[in-house]
């Protein structure tokens, strides 16, 4: 079942006085629950594509449809709603709110959409939000660090908080832009393991990871290799668990 449909997507922007084409007629289909690795060298257009899917940027031409939502034509207001309800983002530089501690960072994200109750209603109760935030912190193994501020955490810990924040909203799509790019091998692999656990098949969550590291490609159900703004390769594979990845 096609969940994300990208058709003839192009993006060009001016870099100083030079016109740069970041994406040039990309066609791509991603199924629900797939773990996709967007792989390619620097400047291939992978982050631009990720941003388009996440509603962080708008294309110059072409269309993106996510779960039948025409993302490429949404107004700014609806893009915000789209990001809030559908997307979770893990950044390369973590981007935690420096003024909030670990727990509050996650609470902030949950507070935007509330907590779904068993009766189908949505609760914005502070206590319930806090419990859910604590639950996610526990999942990433940082419950004992919940009152620490980002400045008091290591890079790996910050990225784990970032993952917990992205997933605590229970988004249908998780986007991760070079999640290990700023971390060493050991910590990076640990981060991927956590992502793997938290986005497992049971969650039926679509995950797109951008990386320039070929060693991470085996993690995906599908690998899309970009080159010069175009899809150079697009193949499915049997995924390899994160703990078996080496680089």
């Amino acid at each position: 079942m096609v969940f994300i449909e990208i058709s003839d997507l192009s993006k060009a922007y001016m870099l100083g006085e030079t016109k740069t084409v970041a994406l040039n007629g990309v066609d791509l289909e991603i199924n629900k629950g797939e773990l996709v690795i967007l792989y390619g060298p620097s400047g291939a257009g992978k982050t631009t594509l990720l941003n388009m899917i996440g509603g962080l940027d708008i294309p110059s031409s072409g269309t993106i449809t996510v779960d039948e939502i025409p993302v490429s034509t949404l107004s700014a207001k609806w893009l915000t709603t789209y990001r809030k309800q559908k997307i979770g983002v893990v950044f390369q530089f973590f981007n935690l709110l420096s003024r909030m501690n670990t727990l509050e960072n996650i609470e902030y994200a949950i507070d935007l959409i509330g907590v779904k109750q068993t009766d189908g209603s949505t609760s914005f109760n502070g206590k319930i939000i806090r419990e859910k935030a604590q639950e996610y912190l526990e999942k990433v193994g940082l419950k004992d660090r919940m009152h620490h501020f980002p400045a008091q955490l290591s890079g790996g810990e910050q990225q784990r908080v970032s993952i917990a924040r992205a997933l605590a909203k229970e988004p249908e799509i998780l986007l991760a832009d070079e999640p290990t790019g700023n971390l060493d091998y050991k910590i990076g692999r640990n981060v991927l393991e956590i992502m793997e656990v938290m986005t497992g098949k049971a969650q039926n969550r679509t995950v797109i990871i951008v990386t320039h590291n070929p060693a991470i490609c085996p993690l995906g159900d599908r690998v899309v290799r970009l080159s010069d703004g175009k899809v150079a390769e697009n193949y499915t594979q049997k995924y390899t668990p994160a703990k078996e990845l080496y680089w």
């Binding site: 979770g88 994200a109 992205a166 909203k169």
Partner: peptide, 14 residues
């Protein structure tokens, strides 16, 4: 700026 962008990215409205 970066934090505001992060807030907007995770769904905070204007």
């Amino acid at each position: 700026q970066r934090e505001i962008a992060t807030l907007l990215t995770i769904g905070t409205n204007n």
